[in-house]
Design a protein around this nucleic acid. Sequence first.
DNA 1: CGGCCAATCGGGGATGTCCCTGATCCAGCC
DNA 2: GGCTGGATCAGGGACATCCCCGATTGGCCG
Lengths: 213, 213
Amino acid sequence: MSVPRVFLVDDHQMFRAGVRSELGDAVEVVGEASDVESAVLGLRATDPEVVLLDVHLPGGGGRAVLETMKAERPALLFLALSVSDAAEDVIAVIRAGARGYVTKTISSDDLAAAITRVRDGDAVFSPRLAGFVLDAFSGDPPTEVTDPQLEQLTTREREVMRLIARGYTYKEIARRLTLSVKTVETHVSAVLRKLQLSSRHELTRWATDRRLI
Amino acid sequence: MSVPRVFLVDDHQMFRAGVRSELGDAVEVVGEASDVESAVLGLRATDPEVVLLDVHLPGGGGRAVLETMKAERPALLFLALSVSDAAEDVIAVIRAGARGYVTKTISSDDLAAAITRVRDGDAVFSPRLAGFVLDAFSGDPPTEVTDPQLEQLTTREREVMRLIARGYTYKEIARRLTLSVKTVETHVSAVLRKLQLSSRHELTRWATDRRLI
DNA sequence: CGGCCAATCGGGGATGTCCCTGATCCAGCC
DNA sequence: GGCTGGATCAGGGACATCCCCGATTGGCCG
C-alpha cells in the first residue's frame, strides 16, 4: 500500500510546516498553496489523490477551490480542515463536495489516518462533528430559542435571516441552501416585514444586538 | 547572542510541530503544552524566556495562563498568537500582560524575529494590528490612528468610510456631506480598493473590528 | 511653469436589493 | 372535501451598489 499523495492548502505557513514535519512518512506532499488562486494553479499542475483544504482561506474560502476544481477534476478527494466547528461551515463545505471535515486540534496520527481513509473512499469527521452532520442531513434543525420576535419567523426564514445578517448576497444564500434566488428574496421580504425593518443593514444590527450571529 | 528559550502553548499539535520544524535553529523549544493546566505545570517546571501563547485555548483561554503565571513569575515574557485579528481579543490579552500579539498567518522568519524582539524587551504586533492597539492604550487624544491601512485614505475618504460602515446609503451620505451621489460612489470605490475589500458589508466588519464606529 | 494629487462630478453598465403580484405543492385540520 | 399556512418559484419594476471610463478645479512643489 503506497502512501497517499497530498496537496496542502492553508494560509498558515506554520501549519503547513507542521503537517509536513509530522506526517512526513505517512503521506507524500506533492504541493502546497496559501490562497485560492495559487491552490487552483497548483492543483492543475500536480496529481494529488487528496487535497487537505483549509476552510478559511484568503481569496474566497476553501469552497471556492472546491467548486472550481470539482468541475475539471471530479475524482479529486477533498478533506476539509478548519479551526471552526460551527455547523454552517461544516455543512457548507460538505455540500460543496468535501469528503470529510476535521478540526485543527486533530493529532498527527489521526490526521494521517483520516487522509488515508479519504483516499480509500471513506468519509471522515471529527467525533464532535459527526453527530450534527448526520443530524443536518437526515433530520429537522435543533431546538430554537424562544424569542417573541424570533417566534414570528418560520424555520426557513430564520436560516435565511442569519445568512443575511452575516452579509451574504442572495445568490450566495441560494447556493448555500440549494434554493432559487427568488425564493431567498421571498424569505428576506417576509423577515423584514415581520421584524418591521427596512433593509439588510438594519437586520444586521438587529441580529447583532440579539447575539444571533 | 544565544537563541531564545521558548515554551509553546497551543492546542493544535500540528501548529506546534510547524513552529518546531520551521524555527528549529532560531529558537530553543524548552517545553510545550496544549491546554491551560498543563501549560501552568510545564512553565513551573522549565525556565523559558518567552512563552508563545495561543489565545484560544481549552481550559480557560490564553488569559488564564497569563494571569496565573504573571503572579509567580513576573519576568516571563508572553507573545500572544491567534488566528483572530479582532480588536477585543488583542486588547484583552494585552491588558492581561502579553508583550506582543501576532496572527497565525505570520511567516516563520517573521515569527522568529518577533520572538527575539520580545525576548529583548520590545513589544511586537502584526502590522495590521499595530494601529488600533496603540490607539486603545494611548488614552483620550482622538488623534487619528497611525494604522498603515487607514493612512492610505484621504480625509474625505475617511468621512465617507465611517458613514458607509454605519449603514447609510449613498444618497443619505451625499445629502449629509452636501455632495453628489456620484462623488460618494467615487470615494467608496477608492476606499474599497485601498483596503482590498469588495463590499460595504466587509467594510462594516473591518471598521467594527478597528473600533472606528 | 508643469506635474501631481485631492476633491469634485458625469455616463453607462452589471449586479444586488427589495417589493409587488401571482402561482404551485404539500401537510395538517375541521 | 375545503381551508390554511409553509415553502417553493416566476415576472417585472424601482432603486442601490460597484465598477469602468472620463472630466474639471484648486493647491502644492520642484
